[in-house]
Design a protein around this nucleic acid. Structure first.
Length: 573
DNA sequence: CTGGGGAAGGGGCCC
DNA sequence: AGGGCCCCTTCCCCA
């Protein structure tokens, strides 16, 4: 750090001190800089408050905290396990509140128990609860001493989860089990190999004041010690544990995953800890920000630093976005998205017509639209990667939330997806008007492979697309379809910037970033982001192969593989 | 090394 | 908004 290029004003301080000391020629017998550790911690704390080099986000309630993985890992084996593969950590709000975690984070970075911002004096019971949960033995011991001096036997705090209002479930939560579950989820590969792993165990009874109960109970309760995002798989480090099965967070998250999540077999892949109801991804955790109250931003890591705007409601999704993209992709792109961004479609799909005012962005034979990073359809697009490299702002080389139309006028993007969406709405009306008048021209001459099929004729479909020949039963679907012809993709991914025509697609895409896989196979515990995938997967176990090749009789579990197979039959070679 | 199959990830889009 | 299905693609394994 000291010798490297330093963008942090803090670091030269250390270097200076060291040089001053070493330069004295005062090479004492101990060869030790007495204040080194203190200074180091001081600098780290300063960096934390500035968000400098912070590589992990901890979400507690609606607050986010930024910190350094190394520091957290050095402080707690629990954190050590959490930050191993994840950059975004959700803590169980039953165990630790944002206020308490603020104190704890301060403690980790300073070694001092600073008074909270709340007028009330520190509640050592709740601190003790949190310290135990987070496996911070020193802090827990400190709290116990304080409680003892105050004449509040901490043993009573067992009931005292009162301070936190924890439900009985959380009182049974075993930190060890949490960690174990996490570790299993982290280390178990997709093939199910159970890698022997040094498993952090709960420390002695000191740290288990409120913890105990059966492992089963504990697993059932480990819901919120979660990692929505992680290092691998773009932001979905959790996805590395695709075989994991969540022990039971789903229930408290409003999901009945009991049928999706089989009990945790000891030698099978561990749980994939689902952070939240994925169905609520865009609604609660990652979607619409709390309308009325902007959650506090922890430390000095202001929301603006995280990519938001000061007057914008706290958007954790946005926070994740900027932070994680910073972490995961130097070029602003997750590894996985990078991989996919370089994909090319090779054959076949119904192609939108070119030349219309709402010409879709196309890559490939037609080449990309200049200045358009998004693909025409799905992953068709190299997003500028193939076309000469991503811009500095990310794979899409664009402002956070650019409006394509306004870009042409030299306007910058919008600071948030919400603002962009709102803005896009203003275009919507105009563009729809344009559609109504008919754009005429080349698109009608092009062959439309998406023309209504015979199946369409089964029932009346009075709503016809003005661009292509597709018809629909209701205007809403037509409107939805017509969006596929627009240049503007109103729904950007806040993490990678990819644009989508449908919010649902974007939400689903976000799930993949965050590793949310709520659908677990009862047989093997493997988890999926979509029900359909699970259904498909179950055929692996059932042996069902419903898709049969009419040419050779080959059977397949997946329709797509049958299609692939048919391609082999029909390909010239 | 190559091609085919199995399995899975992801996006489009209709319902 | 979410489910469901289609399509494209990738990765891995194996012959």
């Amino acid at each position: 750090q000291v010798s490297g290029p330093s963008s942090d004003a803090c670091m030269p301080v250390l270097a200076h001190r060291w040089c001053a000391w070493a330069g004295r020629g005062d090479m004492g017998p101990d060869m030790e800089l007495p204040s080194h550790s203190k200074q180091l911690l001081l600098q780290l704390n300063q960096q934390r408050t500035k968000g400098f080099l912070c590589d992990v986000i901890i979400m507690v309630e609606n607050s986010i905290f930024r910190a350094h993985k190394n520091v957290l890992a050095a402080s707690s084996i629990y954190f050590k396990s959490l930050v191993l593969h994840d950059n975004l950590i959700n803590l169980d709000t039953d165990m630790v509140s944002s206020t308490v975690f603020q104190q704890i984070l301060d403690f980790i970075y300073t070694g001092k128990l600073l008074p909270s911002n709340q007028p009330a004096e520190p509640n050592f019971s709740t601190l003790l609860t949190a310290a135990s949960y987070l496996q911070l033995p020193e802090l827990a011991a400190l709290c116990r001493r304080k409680l003892k001096r105050a004449g509040k036997p901490f043993g009573s705090a067992r009931a005292g989860s009162a301070g936190m209002g924890r439900p009985p479930r959380s009182q049974r939560l075993s930190t060890a089990s949490v960690i174990q579950a996490r570790y299993q989820g982290l280390v178990d590969g997709r093939k199910g190999a159970h890698a022997p792993q040094e498993l952090p165990q709960a420390k002695g009874s000191d740290d288990e004041l409120f913890l105990g109960g059966s492992n089963q109970d504990s697993v059932q309760g480990l819901g919120r010690a979660i990692c929505p995002a992680g290092g691998e798989a773009g932001l979905g480090g959790c996805s590395s544990s695709t075989n994991g099965s969540s022990g039971g967070c789903e229930q408290e998250l409003g999901l009945d995953l009991s049928k999706k999540s089989p009990p945790l077999p000891p030698a099978t892949p561990g749980p994939h800890l689902t952070p939240d109801d994925p169905a609520q991804l865009s609604d609660s955790q990652h979607g619409s920000p709390p309308a009325a109250s902007a959650p506090p931003v922890a430390n000095s890591a202001s929301y603006s630093e995280l990519g938001g705007t000061p007057d914008e409601p706290m958007d954790l999704e946005g926070a994740e976005d900027n932070h994680l993209s910073l972490l995961e992709a130097p070029a602003g792109q997750s590894r996985k998205s990078l991989r996919h961004s370089t994909r090319k479609k090779e054959w076949g799909k119904k192609e939108p017509v070119a030349g219309s005012p709402f010409e879709r962005r196309e890559v490939g034979p037609k080449g990309p639209c200049p200045g358009e990073e998004g693909e025409g359809v799905g992953d068709r697009v190299p997003n500028g990667i193939l076309a000469g490299g991503a811009g500095p702002s990310g794979p899409y080389g664009e402002p956070p939330y650019p409006c394509k139309e306004e870009e042409e006028n030299g306007k910058d993007g919008f600071p948030s997806s919400e603002q962009l969406n709102a803005h896009v709405e203003t275009h919507t009306e105009e563009e729809l008007g344009g559609y109504e008048t008919g754009s005429g021209g080349a698109e009608e001459e092009a062959e439309d492979l998406s023309a209504p099929s015979a199946a369409y004729a089964a029932e009346p479909r009075p709503f016809k697309c003005s661009v292509c020949e597709k018809t629909y039963k209701d205007p809403a679907t037509l409107r939805q379809h017509e969006k596929t012809h627009w240049l503007t993709r109103p729904f950007p991914c806040n993490i990678c910037g990819k644009m989508f025509t449908q919010r649902g697609t974007m939400t689903r895409h976000m799930r993949s970033h965050l590793g949310l896989k709520p659908f677990a196979c009862d047989e093997c515990g493997m988890r999926f982001t979509r029900q359909y995938r699970l259904t498909e997967h179950m055929r692996v176990h059932s042996g069902e192969k419903p898709y049969e090749c009419q040419l050779c009789g080959g059977k397949f579990t997946q329709q797509r593989n049958l299609i692939s197979h048919l391609r082999m039959h029909t390909s010239p070679s």
